Amino acid sequence: MRKLVQPIPGVPLPHGILNACTTVEDVTDVHELMGVEWRALGCCPVHEWKDPCLTDDSPGEESPGEPVAKQFCRPEFEHAQPITLYAGAECSTFGWSYEEAVTHARATMALGEQHGLEAAFWSGKLTVDAVDLTPAAGPVSVAQGVAALEGCLAESYGGVGVLHVPAGAAALLGCCNVLTRDPATGSLETLAGNCAVIGAGYSAENTGPGGIPAEPGTAWLYITGPVHIRRGPLDVIPDRSASVNPRTNDRRVLVERTYVVGTTCTVCAVLVEVCA
Protein backbone atom coordinates (compact mmCIF):
# COMPACT_ATOMS: atom_id res chain seq x y z
CA MET A 1 0.00 0.00 0.00
CA ARG A 2 1.32 3.42 -0.92
CA LYS A 3 2.13 5.82 1.89
CA LEU A 4 0.30 9.15 1.97
CA VAL A 5 2.68 12.14 1.96
CA GLN A 6 2.34 15.89 1.72
CA PRO A 7 1.33 17.42 -1.65
CA ILE A 8 4.04 18.80 -3.92
CA PRO A 9 4.01 22.57 -3.29
CA GLY A 10 3.92 25.05 -6.15
CA VAL A 11 4.82 28.68 -6.73
CA PRO A 12 2.71 31.02 -8.90
CA LEU A 13 4.42 32.39 -12.01
CA PRO A 14 6.50 35.43 -10.99
CA HIS A 15 5.33 37.78 -13.75
CA GLY A 16 1.58 37.15 -13.66
CA ILE A 17 -1.19 39.68 -13.23
CA LEU A 18 -0.87 39.83 -9.43
CA ASN A 19 2.80 40.84 -9.43
CA ALA A 20 4.94 43.93 -9.92
CA CYS A 21 3.29 45.23 -13.11
CA THR A 22 -0.08 45.87 -11.50
CA THR A 23 -1.38 47.64 -8.41
CA VAL A 24 -3.17 45.16 -6.13
CA GLU A 25 -5.32 46.65 -3.38
CA ASP A 26 -6.99 44.46 -0.75
CA VAL A 27 -10.38 45.99 0.02
CA THR A 28 -13.17 45.13 2.45
CA ASP A 29 -15.80 47.60 1.23
CA VAL A 30 -18.41 45.39 -0.43
CA HIS A 31 -19.54 48.32 -2.58
CA GLU A 32 -16.17 48.43 -4.36
CA LEU A 33 -16.43 44.71 -5.04
CA MET A 34 -19.74 45.21 -6.87
CA GLY A 35 -17.98 47.23 -9.59
CA VAL A 36 -16.44 50.68 -9.78
CA GLU A 37 -16.37 53.66 -12.13
CA TRP A 38 -14.09 56.67 -12.43
CA ARG A 39 -13.24 59.63 -14.65
CA ALA A 40 -10.39 58.65 -16.93
CA LEU A 41 -7.09 60.40 -16.18
CA GLY A 42 -4.36 60.80 -18.78
CA CYS A 43 -6.45 60.00 -21.86
CA CYS A 44 -6.86 63.66 -22.83
CA PRO A 45 -4.09 65.16 -24.99
CA VAL A 46 -1.83 68.00 -23.89
CA HIS A 47 -1.50 70.63 -26.63
CA GLU A 48 1.04 73.29 -27.49
CA TRP A 49 -0.32 76.81 -27.63
CA LYS A 50 1.40 79.27 -29.90
CA ASP A 51 0.90 82.93 -29.06
CA PRO A 52 -0.08 84.61 -32.36
CA CYS A 53 1.58 87.82 -31.18
CA LEU A 54 4.94 86.06 -31.18
CA THR A 55 4.72 84.37 -34.56
CA ASP A 56 4.87 85.37 -38.21
CA ASP A 57 1.09 85.16 -38.24
CA SER A 58 0.83 88.18 -35.95
CA PRO A 59 -1.77 90.62 -37.36
CA GLY A 60 0.37 93.66 -36.44
CA GLU A 61 -1.66 96.87 -36.53
CA GLU A 62 -4.68 95.12 -37.98
CA SER A 63 -7.60 93.86 -35.96
CA PRO A 64 -6.69 90.52 -34.39
CA GLY A 65 -10.09 89.07 -35.31
CA GLU A 66 -11.25 85.94 -33.54
CA PRO A 67 -9.06 84.85 -30.62
CA VAL A 68 -7.12 81.62 -30.92
CA ALA A 69 -9.29 78.92 -29.34
CA LYS A 70 -7.76 76.45 -26.92
CA GLN A 71 -9.08 72.92 -26.89
CA PHE A 72 -10.78 71.36 -23.90
CA CYS A 73 -11.30 67.66 -23.23
CA ARG A 74 -14.23 66.23 -21.31
CA PRO A 75 -12.97 63.19 -19.32
CA GLU A 76 -14.93 60.03 -20.04
CA PHE A 77 -16.23 57.68 -17.39
CA GLU A 78 -14.66 54.23 -17.32
CA HIS A 79 -15.76 51.23 -15.30
CA ALA A 80 -14.75 47.75 -14.20
CA GLN A 81 -16.99 44.80 -13.39
CA PRO A 82 -16.45 42.25 -10.61
CA ILE A 83 -14.82 38.89 -11.28
CA THR A 84 -15.45 36.09 -8.78
CA LEU A 85 -13.15 33.08 -8.68
CA TYR A 86 -13.55 29.93 -6.65
CA ALA A 87 -11.69 26.72 -5.85
CA GLY A 88 -13.50 23.64 -4.57
CA ALA A 89 -12.31 20.58 -2.69
CA GLU A 90 -14.28 17.33 -2.42
CA CYS A 91 -13.42 14.08 -0.68
CA SER A 92 -14.86 11.43 1.59
CA THR A 93 -15.15 12.41 5.24
CA PHE A 94 -13.24 9.26 6.17
CA GLY A 95 -9.69 10.39 6.85
CA TRP A 96 -10.27 13.97 5.63
CA SER A 97 -11.30 16.59 8.16
CA TYR A 98 -13.01 19.91 7.54
CA GLU A 99 -9.78 21.76 8.36
CA GLU A 100 -7.83 19.67 5.85
CA ALA A 101 -10.43 20.35 3.16
CA VAL A 102 -10.23 24.10 3.82
CA THR A 103 -6.43 24.01 3.74
CA HIS A 104 -6.48 22.16 0.41
CA ALA A 105 -8.97 24.59 -1.16
CA ARG A 106 -6.97 27.59 0.07
CA ALA A 107 -3.76 26.18 -1.38
CA THR A 108 -5.49 25.54 -4.71
CA MET A 109 -6.71 29.13 -4.83
CA ALA A 110 -3.29 30.54 -3.90
CA LEU A 111 -1.61 28.65 -6.72
CA GLY A 112 -4.31 29.14 -9.37
CA GLU A 113 -5.94 32.52 -8.74
CA GLN A 114 -3.56 34.32 -11.12
CA HIS A 115 -4.41 31.89 -13.91
CA GLY A 116 -8.14 32.30 -13.36
CA LEU A 117 -7.99 36.08 -13.08
CA GLU A 118 -5.88 36.42 -16.23
CA ALA A 119 -8.31 34.30 -18.24
CA ALA A 120 -11.30 36.29 -16.99
CA PHE A 121 -9.67 39.69 -17.65
CA TRP A 122 -8.56 38.56 -21.12
CA SER A 123 -11.99 37.35 -22.21
CA GLY A 124 -14.05 39.97 -20.37
CA LYS A 125 -12.03 43.12 -21.10
CA LEU A 126 -9.12 42.75 -23.52
CA THR A 127 -10.92 40.91 -26.31
CA VAL A 128 -14.00 43.10 -25.90
CA ASP A 129 -12.44 46.58 -26.10
CA ALA A 130 -9.29 46.14 -28.18
CA VAL A 131 -8.38 47.88 -31.41
CA ASP A 132 -6.85 45.29 -33.77
CA LEU A 133 -3.55 46.47 -35.25
CA THR A 134 -2.82 43.32 -37.25
CA PRO A 135 -2.01 44.30 -40.86
CA ALA A 136 -4.02 42.90 -43.75
CA ALA A 137 -1.00 40.76 -44.71
CA GLY A 138 -1.36 38.78 -41.50
CA PRO A 139 0.60 38.19 -38.28
CA VAL A 140 3.90 39.98 -37.70
CA SER A 141 7.03 39.12 -35.75
CA VAL A 142 6.95 39.50 -31.97
CA ALA A 143 9.24 42.55 -32.02
CA GLN A 144 7.15 44.23 -34.72
CA GLY A 145 4.00 43.45 -32.76
CA VAL A 146 5.32 44.99 -29.55
CA ALA A 147 6.45 48.07 -31.47
CA ALA A 148 2.97 48.50 -32.96
CA LEU A 149 1.30 48.08 -29.57
CA GLU A 150 3.56 50.59 -27.85
CA GLY A 151 2.97 53.10 -30.63
CA CYS A 152 -0.78 52.65 -30.28
CA LEU A 153 -0.69 53.23 -26.54
CA ALA A 154 1.67 56.21 -26.80
CA GLU A 155 -0.70 57.98 -29.18
CA SER A 156 -3.48 58.01 -26.59
CA TYR A 157 -1.76 57.79 -23.20
CA GLY A 158 1.36 59.47 -21.92
CA GLY A 159 2.15 57.16 -19.04
CA VAL A 160 3.55 53.68 -18.48
CA GLY A 161 1.29 50.90 -19.74
CA VAL A 162 1.08 47.13 -19.42
CA LEU A 163 1.89 44.59 -22.13
CA HIS A 164 -0.19 41.41 -21.82
CA VAL A 165 1.63 38.34 -23.15
CA PRO A 166 0.55 34.67 -23.22
CA ALA A 167 3.09 32.48 -21.45
CA GLY A 168 3.53 30.48 -24.66
CA ALA A 169 4.99 33.52 -26.43
CA ALA A 170 7.15 34.85 -23.59
CA ALA A 171 10.43 33.21 -24.62
CA LEU A 172 10.36 35.01 -27.96
CA LEU A 173 10.42 38.39 -26.22
CA GLY A 174 13.75 37.49 -24.62
CA CYS A 175 15.58 36.37 -27.74
CA CYS A 176 15.42 39.86 -29.28
CA ASN A 177 15.86 41.72 -25.98
CA VAL A 178 12.34 43.06 -26.30
CA LEU A 179 12.02 42.64 -22.53
CA THR A 180 14.58 43.25 -19.82
CA ARG A 181 14.35 42.70 -16.08
CA ASP A 182 14.26 45.70 -13.76
CA PRO A 183 16.74 44.82 -10.99
CA ALA A 184 14.93 47.05 -8.49
CA THR A 185 11.42 45.63 -8.86
CA GLY A 186 12.04 42.35 -10.67
CA SER A 187 9.44 43.29 -13.29
CA LEU A 188 9.90 42.80 -17.03
CA GLU A 189 9.99 46.00 -19.08
CA THR A 190 10.30 47.06 -22.70
CA LEU A 191 12.82 49.63 -23.93
CA ALA A 192 10.00 52.19 -23.89
CA GLY A 193 9.39 51.45 -20.22
CA ASN A 194 6.11 49.55 -20.41
CA CYS A 195 5.73 46.65 -18.00
CA ALA A 196 4.91 43.10 -19.15
CA VAL A 197 2.54 40.57 -17.60
CA ILE A 198 3.33 37.00 -18.65
CA GLY A 199 0.12 35.08 -18.08
CA ALA A 200 -0.66 31.37 -18.04
CA GLY A 201 -4.33 32.35 -18.13
CA TYR A 202 -3.62 34.45 -21.20
CA SER A 203 -2.02 31.45 -22.86
CA ALA A 204 -5.07 29.31 -22.10
CA GLU A 205 -7.31 31.85 -23.85
CA ASN A 206 -5.13 33.17 -26.73
CA THR A 207 -8.08 34.79 -28.49
CA GLY A 208 -8.25 38.00 -30.47
CA PRO A 209 -10.76 40.86 -30.50
CA GLY A 210 -14.23 39.40 -30.59
CA GLY A 211 -13.01 36.16 -29.02
CA ILE A 212 -11.63 34.66 -32.23
CA PRO A 213 -9.06 31.92 -31.43
CA ALA A 214 -5.51 32.35 -32.72
CA GLU A 215 -4.45 30.08 -35.55
CA PRO A 216 -1.74 27.48 -34.80
CA GLY A 217 1.70 29.12 -34.74
CA THR A 218 0.33 32.54 -33.74
CA ALA A 219 -0.49 34.37 -30.53
CA TRP A 220 -2.35 37.53 -29.56
CA LEU A 221 -0.60 40.28 -27.63
CA TYR A 222 -2.40 43.19 -25.97
CA ILE A 223 -1.42 46.48 -24.38
CA THR A 224 -3.36 48.66 -21.94
CA GLY A 225 -2.86 51.57 -19.63
CA PRO A 226 -2.04 50.87 -15.96
CA VAL A 227 -3.92 47.99 -14.34
CA HIS A 228 -5.46 48.41 -10.87
CA ILE A 229 -6.84 45.34 -9.08
CA ARG A 230 -9.20 45.52 -6.14
CA ARG A 231 -9.20 42.19 -4.31
CA GLY A 232 -11.74 41.10 -1.69
CA PRO A 233 -11.27 38.76 1.25
CA LEU A 234 -11.12 35.01 0.81
CA ASP A 235 -14.44 33.48 1.86
CA VAL A 236 -14.78 29.84 2.97
CA ILE A 237 -18.14 28.24 2.15
CA PRO A 238 -19.92 26.52 3.88
CA ASP A 239 -19.31 26.01 7.58
CA ARG A 240 -18.28 22.68 9.07
CA SER A 241 -21.69 20.99 9.45
CA ALA A 242 -23.11 22.09 6.08
CA SER A 243 -20.06 20.83 4.21
CA VAL A 244 -21.08 17.17 4.46
CA ASN A 245 -23.61 15.50 2.18
CA PRO A 246 -25.27 12.88 4.43
CA ARG A 247 -26.37 10.80 1.45
CA THR A 248 -22.86 10.21 0.14
CA ASN A 249 -20.84 11.11 3.22
CA ASP A 250 -18.69 13.35 1.01
CA ARG A 251 -17.40 16.70 2.14
CA ARG A 252 -17.35 19.74 -0.16
CA VAL A 253 -15.64 23.03 0.64
CA LEU A 254 -15.36 26.16 -1.51
CA VAL A 255 -13.14 29.21 -1.21
CA GLU A 256 -14.22 32.28 -3.16
CA ARG A 257 -12.76 35.69 -3.82
CA THR A 258 -14.01 38.68 -5.81
CA TYR A 259 -11.77 40.99 -7.81
CA VAL A 260 -12.38 44.18 -9.77
CA VAL A 261 -9.74 44.69 -12.46
CA GLY A 262 -9.61 48.13 -14.07
CA THR A 263 -7.48 49.73 -16.74
CA THR A 264 -7.64 53.02 -18.59
CA CYS A 265 -7.63 54.61 -22.04
CA THR A 266 -6.76 52.47 -25.04
CA VAL A 267 -6.66 48.68 -25.41
CA CYS A 268 -4.73 47.55 -28.51
CA ALA A 269 -4.15 44.05 -29.90
CA VAL A 270 -1.93 42.47 -32.53
CA LEU A 271 -1.44 38.94 -33.85
CA VAL A 272 2.16 37.70 -33.91
CA GLU A 273 3.99 34.65 -35.18
CA VAL A 274 5.40 32.30 -32.57
CA CYS A 275 7.10 29.83 -34.90
CA ALA A 276 9.17 30.05 -38.07
Rank of each mutant, 00 (worst) to 15 (best):
P226E: 06
E256C: 06
A119T: 08
V272S: 02
E25S: 08
V267Q: 02
A40H: 06
A171H: 14
N206V: 10
A89L: 04
A89Q: 11
Y202L: 15
A200R: 15
G159S: 08
R2V: 13
V272T: 11
A120R: 15
P52M: 12
P226S: 09
V5I: 15
C175L: 10
L41F: 05
A200D: 15
P75V: 06
Q6S: 10
R230L: 14
T218Y: 08
E273G: 09
Y157N: 00
R252Y: 03
T108S: 13
R252I: 06
G158V: 01
T264I: 09
H31I: 14
C44N: 09
P213R: 07
G16P: 00
L153P: 00
E90K: 07
Q6P: 00
L149D: 00
G60L: 14
V162A: 02
V102E: 02
T185W: 02
L172W: 13
R230A: 05
G159I: 00
E273C: 02
T103H: 03
R252F: 03
G201Y: 01
T108Q: 13
P139C: 05
G159D: 04
P64E: 12
A269H: 08
A107H: 02
S187K: 10
C21E: 07
T185P: 03
L153Q: 04
T190C: 08
E78K: 14
V146H: 02
G65H: 07
L163D: 04
D239S: 07
A214K: 07
C73L: 05
L4C: 10
G232P: 05
G145Y: 04
N194T: 01
A87C: 12
A130K: 09
P64Y: 10
V272K: 08
R2G: 14
H115W: 07
S187T: 13
A196W: 00
A204R: 15
G35Y: 11
A20W: 04
A200Y: 13
Q6H: 10
T55F: 01
P14W: 03
W38D: 04
R2L: 14
S187P: 00
A87K: 14
I237N: 00
A101G: 05
A147Q: 11
A269F: 03
G42L: 02
R251V: 09
P67K: 13
V255D: 05
S243N: 01
G159M: 03
E215A: 15
R74E: 10
S156N: 06
A120D: 14
L163G: 05
G138I: 12
L173K: 07
A143W: 00
V160Y: 00
H164N: 11
A120F: 11
V227R: 01
G199D: 09
S241I: 07
P59D: 05
W49G: 14
G262I: 10
M109Y: 13
A154C: 00
R247S: 14
G88H: 01
V178L: 13
R257D: 01
S92P: 02
L41H: 06
L179I: 08
V270C: 04
T185Q: 08
A196S: 10
H104K: 15
L172C: 03
P9K: 03
A40K: 09
E25K: 14
S63G: 06
A242Q: 11
V267R: 04
H79C: 09
C176N: 08
G16N: 09
A184C: 07
E66V: 06
G124L: 08
L153H: 07
T258D: 03
